Amino acid sequence: MSRVVVTGRIPEAAIEKLRAEHEVDVWEGPESISREELLRRVAGADGIVSLLTERVDAELLDAAGPQLKVVANVAVGYDNIDVPACTERGVIATNTPGVLTDATADIALSLILMATRRLGEGERLIRSGEAWKWGMFFLLGSSLQGKTLGVVGMGGIGQATARRAKAFGMEIVYQSRSEIDPAIAGELGARRVELDELLAISDVVSLHCPYGPATHHLIGAEQLAAMKDSAFLVNTARGPIVDEAALAAALRDGRIAGAGLDVYEKEPQVHPGLLGLDNVVLLPHLGSATVETRTAMAMLAADNALAVLSGERPATPIR
């Protein structure tokens, strides 16, 4: 039997699947595992099932040892994994694309609706106990029908978000490294544009691109200034794609109308400039947070680990 280290709590079905074939060491503490404890536990491991909260780098790979065969990340994003370092050591890294597409797209559309219709403000008002009265100009928001959604990163989640937005009557433009399937583009009525044009014409900009050096602070002060002052920014991808300080300033000064965030630059910290603003909706990274999705993610990660440990090709290797 091989030894598999799971760096945090995951659905029990995935643990049972791993334990049916291998020795499994699971960190079950209420807090994230400390770096020191993580380095200690991975020593001698043949496989690691990692959460996005753990950094898998050369230090950790060397602490595991040369027998390590696989790192199975329970996330679609893998900015926490040094993939070249894995490749250099002959370790196969995997992720969990596909299974969280719909759940994350649902959250993206939820943030679009919450931000444009000022639902967070309304909910906070009710809970505050303050007196309120219906009126023609009370908490007026913006409709989506006939407006333009700009999707930055038109992969599976971007397409799913665009499909939902189209059902609300929105027009779709997108920026991506390559053209999407013509049949999907036709279904969505989606037009590919450069980022500058997307920012200038979109009423809502929704971020779905992967995070890396090329997308660090992709949306900063210059890009926010290029948006309409009536536009909204939504981020369900990775926090550092947006310069939070620049976003806080743009929201405070009315350079854009609002924003909806599910991810943050220094998670779980949120830029203090955002916390006091009414025109931003803040969620605690709930993109994949359904029982069904988190179970599917964990099961796919377990399947990936088991495949590699059996000498087979995993379903979703990171290329």
Rank of each mutant, 00 (worst) to 15 (best):
M114V: 04
L125M: 11
D106N: 12
R3C: 05
L275H: 09
G258K: 11
N95L: 03
N73D: 04
D196I: 10
G158L: 03
L111Q: 14
A259G: 04
E121C: 02
E16K: 13
K133F: 11
E179P: 05
L247F: 06
G254V: 14
V99L: 01
A75W: 04
V205I: 08
S176Y: 01
D79Y: 12
A75F: 11
E36A: 10
Q223S: 04
G169P: 12
E54Y: 05
L199C: 04
Q159C: 07
T101Q: 03
A58K: 11
Q67V: 12
E21T: 09
I81A: 11
G29Q: 01
F138K: 10
L309N: 10
P213E: 15
G189H: 00
L60P: 09
L275S: 08
K228I: 03
G65I: 14
T104E: 08
K228D: 06
G98R: 02
L144A: 10
L113I: 15
A45Q: 14
N95Q: 05
I33E: 04
A14V: 12
E59Q: 14
C86G: 08
N235R: 04
A160H: 07
L18S: 07
E267P: 09
I107W: 00
V308F: 01
L199A: 00
G47L: 10
R41G: 02
M114F: 12
P182Y: 01
Y174E: 01
I180Q: 03
A301H: 08
G90A: 08
L144K: 07
T87I: 11
P317I: 00
V308R: 13
G90C: 07
V74S: 11
I112G: 08
R40W: 06
S32N: 13
T104N: 09
R117K: 15
G129Y: 01
S34N: 09
L195M: 09
T236A: 02
T236F: 00
C209F: 01
T53H: 12
M297L: 04
Y174L: 03
P314C: 07
Y174W: 00
L60A: 06
R164F: 03
D102C: 02
K133Y: 12
A20P: 09
G156N: 14
P210L: 07
V263N: 01
V91P: 06
R191T: 12
A226Y: 04
Y78P: 02
Q145N: 11
L18Q: 09
R35W: 14
H216M: 07
T7M: 10
V205E: 04
G254C: 15
A115T: 15
S288K: 04
A43D: 12
M114L: 14
G44E: 11
E265M: 05
V74T: 15
T290K: 13
R9K: 15
R294Y: 00
A103Y: 00
D262I: 00
V76I: 15
M154P: 02
G254E: 10
A302C: 09
G254H: 09
V71Y: 09
D57W: 09
V56C: 13
A13Y: 06
Q159M: 14
W132N: 05
D46E: 15
R117C: 08
I157R: 06
I219S: 03
A165G: 13
R117Y: 11
L188E: 02
